[in-house]
Amino acid sequence: LVRYRTISKIPQITLNFVDLKGDPFLASPTSDREIIAPKIKERTHNVTEKVTQVLSLGADVLPEYKLQAPRIHRWTILHYSPFKAVWDWLILLLVIYTAVFTPYSAAFLLKETEEGPPATECGYACQPLAVVDLIVDIMFIVDILINFRTTYVNANEEVVSHPGRIAVHYFKGWFLIDMVAAIPFDLLIFGSGSEELIGLLKTARLLRLVRVARKLDRYSEYGAAVLFLLMCTFALIAHWLACIWYAIGNMEQPHMDSRIGWLHNLGDQIGKPYNSSGLGGPSIKDKYVTALYFTFSSLTSVGFGNVSPNTNSEKIFSICVMLIGSLMYASIFGNVSAIIQRLYSGTARYHTQMLRVREFIRFHQIPNPLRQRLEEYFQHAWSYTNGIDMNAVLKGFPECLQADICLHLNRSLLQHCKPFRGATKGCLRALAMKFKTTHAPPGDTLVHAGDLLTALYFISRGSIEILRGDVVVAILGKNDIFGEPLNLYARPGKSNGDVRALTYCDLHKIHR
């Protein structure tokens, strides 16, 4: 019993810090008490220290592992850092350059016999395009090294910054494609005289377009951006097909006994025919423009016929181009109408809503002055909100995010209106959640004399007048207030005048 009563005193000691020596009952000389009392004092002292730490809000209350900052290894790049964003855009520009100039170089340097010394005699450094290609190869190699040090988000939505895990993730992902696209074939085969082989191998750079397509997928929600990307894709495919079309004609031209190829026909049409040795002929500019003209006309199913396939190889390629053109029509131009419709969806919704308003007016036989006010209010409210119901949009977000959005939407009023000066951010967040926005066209009466005042109004834009009878008592403008002081009276009061809008007004109100 003594032991039980001794232990039962522990909660009292913990909360009230009572010393055991003052209790005459606990001072009985028993061996059990002498053993338990020192333990009680020690526990009391420890609990006292913990309570003191909690009340003082000291940093040592938290466990040590929670006080440590997340460790980022040296030379690790955050995937959302500004440097990584700028670097990704730079790589994107280099990939676009590669997609345009690599097929052009591979096709127009394929057994090209233009006048001038061969590239091997001039030297590697004197070729501007080769120098640019070398810079692109170096940048792609540097990009691989950067990807080995860039964080990523795993399946659990955690940012991984450990170098080993980053390397394994990159090896399992895009490393092989990036490595093949970054191989400097110019340096590996330079001086061997195989410019045709170098041009063909350099087309491996186009593998990076797969990554670019995935990154550009984030802009699919913007109709104008999608339309622009589709047109660029169409032009890029036409450019690639033009390079292939020229390569076919250029390879067949020296081996044909009869002059029936499209390059021969082009030379005869523009007065620059090929001679018996295969030299001469149109310039590279004429060849490229004509090839691009043929691919565009074939892809769009126009086909004027002034550039036509004559050999079997050219006919087979033309059939493939027609098939590609039909697929592009289905996948690209078939979506253009939907994209344009999405661009004008706001206008369509406006006309639909206006039609419903006019049908309501016609069905209920609203008189002319009231009908005009109804239409003007709808037009003004639509121009202010673009038909978007803010309350319906915010309803799907958590309250903390709703408060931040409301604070942002009402920031101008909260910053410049005098009653809100000096208020804490928590108070402003709470008030912003209570605001209701209303609009009024010129001549609209917001409050009639004798109406119950259940709200306090803040003028965000425009001006109003307060009338008693036919006498203008006051004219209020931006950041002015009218209405009933909230919670100042037990019952809502009545208006002693009319409140009429002089201009288009936007008002925020808080109800009782």
Score class of each variant (00 low, 15 high):
residue 270 I to Q: 03
residue 185 F to K: 03
residue 115 E to I: 15
residue 226 V to K: 10
residue 107 A to Q: 01
residue 413 L to Y: 01
residue 66 K to D: 04
residue 301 S to C: 05
residue 264 H to D: 02
residue 208 R to W: 01
residue 327 L to N: 01
residue 101 F to C: 07
residue 169 H to N: 09
residue 435 F to M: 11
residue 162 H to I: 11
residue 412 S to H: 13
residue 378 F to Q: 13
residue 420 F to P: 01
residue 234 F to T: 01
residue 312 N to A: 01
residue 82 P to Q: 10
residue 192 S to G: 10
residue 352 T to L: 11
residue 330 A to S: 01
residue 171 F to W: 04
residue 334 G to R: 07
residue 251 M to I: 08
residue 171 F to A: 09
residue 336 V to W: 03
residue 163 P to I: 04
residue 392 A to N: 07
residue 154 N to G: 13
residue 287 K to Y: 03
residue 313 S to W: 04
residue 161 S to Y: 13
residue 378 F to A: 13
residue 416 H to Y: 13
residue 325 G to P: 01
residue 371 R to W: 01
residue 65 Y to A: 11
residue 216 L to M: 09
residue 246 Y to F: 01
residue 385 T to P: 04
residue 331 S to F: 11
residue 224 A to M: 11
residue 331 S to N: 03
residue 335 N to S: 03
residue 67 L to Q: 05
residue 415 Q to V: 08
residue 442 P to V: 04
residue 345 S to E: 10
residue 94 L to D: 05
residue 284 I to W: 01
residue 424 T to Y: 03
residue 183 I to M: 04
residue 283 S to H: 01
residue 229 L to R: 01
residue 125 A to W: 15
residue 431 L to I: 09
residue 251 M to L: 11
residue 433 M to V: 07
residue 78 L to P: 05
residue 110 L to D: 15
residue 155 A to D: 10
residue 339 I to M: 04
residue 418 K to D: 15
residue 161 S to V: 11
residue 68 Q to S: 07
residue 295 T to P: 01
residue 136 V to F: 05
residue 185 F to E: 01
residue 360 F to R: 03
residue 394 L to N: 03
residue 397 F to E: 01
residue 293 Y to M: 04
residue 135 I to F: 07
residue 221 E to F: 03
residue 104 Y to E: 01
residue 396 G to I: 07
residue 323 L to M: 15
residue 100 V to E: 01
residue 280 G to S: 04
residue 224 A to F: 14
residue 161 S to L: 05
residue 117 P to A: 13
residue 69 A to D: 14
residue 173 G to A: 04
residue 402 Q to D: 01
residue 294 F to Q: 01
residue 154 N to K: 08
residue 306 N to V: 01
residue 86 V to S: 04
residue 304 F to W: 03
residue 74 R to H: 07
residue 380 H to Q: 05
residue 257 D to R: 08
residue 115 E to S: 14
residue 396 G to W: 11
residue 449 A to M: 06
residue 101 F to S: 04
residue 339 I to W: 04
residue 246 Y to Q: 01
residue 382 W to M: 07
residue 113 T to D: 05
residue 64 E to D: 10
residue 141 I to P: 01
residue 265 N to A: 14
residue 390 M to I: 05
residue 344 Y to S: 11
residue 371 R to T: 03
residue 332 I to P: 03
residue 143 D to N: 03
residue 422 G to L: 10
residue 193 G to L: 05
residue 355 L to S: 14
residue 225 A to T: 05
residue 445 T to R: 04
residue 333 F to H: 06
residue 213 A to P: 06
residue 356 R to C: 13
residue 200 L to A: 04
residue 123 G to Y: 15
residue 343 L to K: 06
residue 66 K to Q: 15
residue 434 K to F: 03
residue 401 L to C: 03
residue 104 Y to H: 01
residue 392 A to W: 04
residue 227 L to I: 14
residue 194 S to R: 11
residue 133 D to M: 01
residue 129 L to E: 05
residue 258 S to V: 09
residue 203 T to F: 04
residue 339 I to K: 01
residue 371 R to H: 04
residue 424 T to D: 12
residue 159 V to L: 05
residue 355 L to V: 10
residue 267 G to C: 04
residue 402 Q to K: 04
residue 282 P to F: 01
residue 155 A to E: 14
residue 238 A to R: 01
residue 326 S to C: 05
residue 250 N to V: 14
residue 75 W to S: 04
residue 418 K to L: 09
residue 322 M to C: 06
residue 421 R to N: 07
residue 249 G to F: 03
residue 376 E to R: 13
residue 328 M to W: 03
residue 158 E to V: 11
residue 426 G to C: 04
residue 390 M to R: 07
residue 175 F to N: 01
residue 270 I to A: 01
residue 236 L to Q: 01
residue 377 Y to H: 07
residue 177 I to M: 04
residue 325 G to S: 01
residue 355 L to K: 08
residue 373 R to A: 04
residue 431 L to K: 03
residue 237 I to E: 01
residue 419 P to A: 09
residue 366 I to L: 05
residue 88 D to L: 01
residue 314 E to H: 01
residue 117 P to Y: 06
residue 70 P to T: 08
residue 250 N to L: 11
residue 302 V to S: 04
residue 367 P to I: 01
residue 359 E to Q: 10
residue 167 A to H: 01
residue 200 L to F: 10
residue 158 E to G: 13
residue 220 S to H: 09
residue 314 E to N: 01
residue 143 D to E: 01
residue 141 I to A: 09
residue 303 G to W: 01
residue 326 S to L: 07
residue 109 L to I: 03
residue 87 W to G: 03
residue 71 R to A: 13
residue 369 P to Q: 07
residue 336 V to T: 03
residue 157 E to M: 15
residue 224 A to E: 09
residue 343 L to T: 12
residue 237 I to R: 01
residue 139 M to F: 14
residue 266 L to V: 01
residue 350 Y to A: 01
residue 180 V to R: 01
residue 224 A to D: 10
residue 141 I to N: 01
residue 125 A to L: 15
residue 438 T to E: 08
residue 213 A to N: 04
residue 187 L to D: 12
residue 235 A to R: 01
residue 96 I to T: 01
residue 333 F to R: 03
residue 341 Q to G: 10
residue 242 A to N: 01
residue 425 K to Q: 11
residue 78 L to N: 09
residue 102 T to D: 02
residue 201 L to D: 01
residue 290 T to V: 01
residue 137 D to F: 01
residue 305 G to V: 01
residue 278 G to I: 01
residue 385 T to V: 03
residue 304 F to L: 01
residue 307 V to A: 01
residue 350 Y to D: 01
residue 282 P to E: 01
residue 112 E to Y: 15
residue 76 T to V: 07
residue 221 E to Q: 13
residue 142 V to D: 01
residue 111 K to Q: 03
residue 427 C to L: 08
residue 288 Y to K: 01
residue 366 I to R: 02
residue 364 H to N: 13
residue 238 A to E: 01
residue 232 C to N: 01
residue 130 A to I: 05
residue 282 P to G: 01
residue 93 L to G: 07
residue 340 I to C: 03
residue 356 R to P: 03
residue 334 G to M: 01
residue 276 S to Y: 04
residue 363 F to D: 01
residue 396 G to T: 13
residue 193 G to R: 13
residue 439 H to T: 14
residue 230 L to A: 05
residue 337 S to V: 05
residue 272 K to S: 01
residue 312 N to L: 01
residue 233 T to G: 14
residue 313 S to N: 14
residue 88 D to Q: 01
residue 154 N to C: 09
residue 274 Y to D: 03
residue 107 A to F: 01
residue 229 L to P: 11
residue 230 L to T: 04
residue 90 L to G: 07
residue 446 L to C: 01
residue 248 I to A: 01
residue 200 L to E: 02
residue 130 A to E: 07
residue 237 I to P: 01
residue 251 M to C: 01
residue 177 I to Y: 05
residue 348 A to Q: 13
residue 216 L to D: 01
residue 76 T to S: 04
residue 372 Q to A: 04
residue 239 H to N: 01
residue 221 E to V: 01
residue 267 G to F: 04
residue 361 I to Y: 01
residue 349 R to I: 07
residue 82 P to N: 04
residue 421 R to C: 13
residue 142 V to Q: 03
residue 138 I to D: 03
residue 171 F to Y: 04
residue 405 I to N: 01
residue 397 F to I: 06
residue 280 G to H: 01
residue 289 V to M: 01
residue 435 F to S: 02
residue 112 E to P: 14
residue 419 P to N: 06
residue 280 G to F: 01
residue 402 Q to S: 02
residue 258 S to E: 11
residue 144 I to Y: 01
residue 137 D to P: 01
residue 81 S to C: 04
residue 201 L to R: 01
residue 289 V to C: 01
residue 246 Y to C: 01
residue 139 M to G: 04
residue 164 G to E: 06
residue 244 I to D: 01
residue 425 K to N: 05
residue 440 A to E: 04
residue 225 A to E: 04
residue 266 L to R: 01
residue 379 Q to E: 07
residue 225 A to D: 01
residue 301 S to D: 01
residue 275 N to F: 01
residue 252 E to Q: 07
residue 431 L to E: 02
residue 184 P to G: 01
residue 312 N to D: 01
residue 285 K to W: 04
residue 421 R to G: 09
residue 331 S to W: 12
residue 391 N to Y: 15
residue 362 R to Y: 01
residue 107 A to E: 01
residue 251 M to H: 04
residue 125 A to M: 12
residue 220 S to D: 08
residue 130 A to G: 03
residue 195 E to V: 14
residue 213 A to Q: 06
residue 404 D to M: 02
residue 155 A to Y: 11
residue 311 T to V: 01
residue 279 L to I: 07
residue 240 W to C: 01
residue 358 R to H: 15
residue 163 P to E: 01
residue 391 N to P: 05
residue 350 Y to C: 01
residue 245 W to I: 01
residue 258 S to L: 09
residue 379 Q to W: 04
residue 228 F to G: 11
residue 276 S to F: 03
residue 390 M to E: 03
residue 371 R to N: 06
residue 136 V to T: 06
residue 76 T to L: 13
residue 109 L to T: 07
residue 426 G to N: 04
residue 129 L to F: 08
residue 360 F to H: 01
residue 261 G to D: 03
residue 83 F to T: 07
residue 104 Y to P: 01
